[in-house]
Design a protein around this nucleic acid. Structure first.
Lengths: 287, 287
DNA sequence: AACGATTTGTTCGTATGTATC
DNA sequence: TGATACATACGAACAAATCGT
């Protein structure tokens, strides 16, 4: 009784969706039809639809209609290191996604040299110095899935890691490349995870409603070498409605840590593994 | 030019806020004043304010006005185990919060016995069996900060852990209690992290706008014993606008892993540490 | 305790713009 | 090109919460 009408309408539609009376992919009645059916105004119906969008139940397509979202299979990103494979190394991004029988794709890295801003303070670099940024867009099954930007101190390039400033993939991965070229070994990292409204460019890439109703997850990975100096900052942005993260600590049964229904993609540097195998990785796994 | 008017208004107000022309805590002009100032309708002004709410810049208080939010100091929750303290053990929730010079508080656990539902499938328990749930509300400096519910298989109570079904704190923590009483040692856990719109009760406790514009973060921690059997499922819910999570893997400099400006509160069982010290915890830390 | 003034919340009706088919 | 459907915008009215008198 106390509930405003737009929520009454929204909850009624939600029940119909969850009872499969409105199956996944189905089109909802138009706003004008709903207005008549609930004897409300079109604006009130639209408020109800916004409420459903926020909960990820429907999506609107201008000129077409409002549709029940297809059941999204969340993509699981494990933040604490991939399990050993037969080669003893972590798998690449594409291998990990393919293991789930899903089709990954990624643009070639776009490379820029920028002034260090506050946003890359984790690299411990002064404001007048420069950083290399390598930016990549990733999709799964044709759906845009994440935006990723890695920052490296420009000093690494001057010391000889010149391929960092070349566009295009570094097939062995930048972590391995830095170890081969400069002997810099990545021994650990810290991820920080936060939720915020999407920027305009993120809304466009992920095709999210422009009013910020669906938020994004930002994961900032700061990687350290043996001296404890930060060597890389990777910022990954994921739409919150189709992603899920996992963290394993201590002994976790293998069937849980790497379930066949999930996939383990780290916010790796470029397209390769982000962590030096054999280093001080995650705790040993029980067998 | 292409931007709709409500976003033009919102971005203008955003600039004023970020330039401190509208300092934290200040009241914005009323909707009617803004309507006159921007020569728009009140509804359009209200759309602009909703856009600012979604970005966490302002809040509305019915009957009072719209205010610039005070700078929120995010509370950092570290998911990969607390650093060793002098005693060699993790700290309790209250100790960890106090270490940041902030005032923690928590309600006494509310204990219930429930049928196992789909929501606790991680415990690997059939639908007709029973679980113990222990629910707690936590606040910091008087601000509601998290809701936490731990589930234990009822079998543990039958085997002698009778204090699980008593309301009130288990001061040494349920993890230590289970090890003392039944010899069950927690050796690892998996956290899964997801973002969703808040339920009604969560909106009320966290005082979030009722339309789900601010989302919550749900962390599900499944803890395992030495046999790889799940012994506990803890579901923690945090409002996304004042929380931040950290994950440390491998060697991370101490100043980063445990910065003085952050605090390390795990989604522990009840109010005590969640992880058996000396077990297969996170990798050793560099000095 | 009661009341009035102020401010945000909800709902309505209408009109026009823009994307899609 | 026209028809359909969602997006934005306007103006108006009343409800509900808050605060001071």
């Amino acid at each position: 009784m106390a509930d405003p009408m737009y929520r009454v309408i929204a909850e009624d539609l939600q029940n119909q969706i969850e009872a499969r009376m409105l199956p996944a992919g189905a089109q909802l009645p138009t706003e004008l039809e709903l207005r008549d059916r609930y004897d409300a105004s079109r604006n009130t119906v639209r408020d109800a639809i916004k409420w459903l969008i926020t909960r990820g139940l429907v999506e609107t397509r201008p000129g077409q209609g409002t549709f029940v979202v297809e059941k999204i299979v969340p993509f699981v990103t494990t933040l604490t290191g991939t399990p050993e494979t037969s080669s003893g190394e972590g798998r690449t991004y594409k291998d990990e996604v393919s293991a789930l029988f899903r089709q990954p794709s990624a643009t070639a890295p776009r490379v820029e040299i920028q002034e260090a801003s506050d946003a890359v303070a984790e690299l411990g670099i002064g404001a007048d110095q420069q950083v290399v940024s390598r930016h990549q867009e990733r999709s799964i099954d044709g759906t845009p899935w994440s935006l990723q930007t890695s920052f490296y101190p420009m000093a690494l390039v001057l010391r000889g890691a010149t391929r960092l400033i070349q566009a295009g993939d570094i097939t062995e991965g930048t972590v391995a490349y830095l170890e081969e070229t400069l002997g810099i070994k990545q021994v650990g990292y810290q991820d920080t995870i936060m939720v915020r409204a999407p920027h305009g460019s993120e809304s466009r890439f992920f095709r999210l409603p422009g009013d910020g109703r669906i938020s994004v997850i930002e994961v900032r990975r700061t990687a350290f070498d043996e001296q404890g100096a930060p060597v890389r900052l990777t910022i990954s942005v994921y739409p919150a409605d189709r992603n899920l993260f996992a963290v394993n600590v201590g002994q976790v049964p293998e069937s849980i840590a790497a379930p066949p229904s999930a996939v383990l993609a780290e916010p790796a540097a470029d397209s390769d593994q982000s962590f030096a195998a054999g280093g001080a990785g995650p705790a040993p796994r029980q067998e």
